[in-house]
Nucleic acid binder design. Structure first.
Lengths: 160, 160
DNA sequence: CATGATATCCCATACTGTCCCATCACGGCG
DNA sequence: CGCCGTGATGGGACAGTATGGGATATCATG
């Protein structure tokens, strides 16, 4: 399950969006014909993955913590309480609930970004901004890596 | 039995609320056509689940604590004694008893939050506050969640 | 036994989520 | 270069849900 690349799709008046077919193909393996979508904890966007993935996490919570564990309760509330199981319609679209649209600031367009075992759903503008930041970081990291390869012994002070 | 997502519904003057159909669908498996609702021990909200689940909990209490443990007695009494079996009416609504409404501070609107094997019923404002706190904690606990995963490669996507 | 408050039941109505079908845009293939 | 298949969009039709009221049972009381 490796989501990659990014696609920009329209969100119609009813709140429907087509999930990129490439992504849908990856999710086909899932028993549930749809995606589990939730609000990202760190970023102003939505995250989506197979329902099994989320199930796995919540199961872990039940196993690792006791039935009456406070921390488990809190994590479950944050994770499951914010996760919507959205089924695909015949055309491969999902209906994004108002709360999710509001959280991500999405109105009529959404950007789907594959990031490994899950994908993000952004409001175009926000995505542009975030992307710029990441590019800057990547650039810095690349330079650093380059420096490391060329002169391993000197890498410590090689901030270019 | 896996409750997820959150829905906001109206509570009419009579104290009736529609239980989200998705939740109702999950409870359909239960022989009792309704839900078991009780006051949460830790949070200022109500908790609800199938009658069967409550029975399971009380059994668990017997296992986790000694048979004559005072705490167990207290918990069991509070849980079993304070639980209301609320049946669905023809429209899928339940009538929340005054005591429960007062406890949760619910007046004309209620938020249903799925948290796995049960769901919570909150007063909107209170839920919003609690939710923000939990999101912050969840962000902090991200590493912990990652550590819980059996398959480490699954946690390597973009940062949650 | 009468009475008011409370719980049920039933019906009417506005919405919203789904489903189905038509149109378009884009590439690949005769 | 036009035909065709797949994916993305839009809209309309309908059924399932969420809500509100009013009429009817129930029950604890005075």
């Amino acid at each position: 399950m490796r989501f990659t690349a990014n696609y920009t799709n329209k969100v119609d008046k009813k709140g429907r969006v087509s999930v990129p077919s490439r992504f849908r193909a990856l999710l086909a393996a899932s028993e549930f014909n749809g995606v589990a979508v939730y609000e990202s904890f760190k970023l102003p966007c939505l995250e989506a993955s197979s329902r099994e993935f989320i199930d796995g996490l919540s199961e872990q919570l039940n196993e690792e913590f006791g039935a009456f564990d406070d921390e488990k309760e809190a994590l479950a509330a944050a994770l499951l309480g914010g996760t919507f199981d959205l089924p695909f319609d015949a055309e491969g679209r999902i209906l994004l609930p108002q709360p999710l649209l509001r959280f991500a600031g999405i109105t009529d367009t959404a950007v789907f970004v594959g990031v490994g075992e899950k994908f993000l759903i952004w409001e175009p503008q926000a995505w542009e901004v975030y992307r710029e930041e990441q590019r800057a970081l990547a650039r810095a990291a690349a330079l650093k890596l380059g420096a490391l390869r060329r002169r391993p012994e000197l890498s410590r002070g090689a901030e270019t």
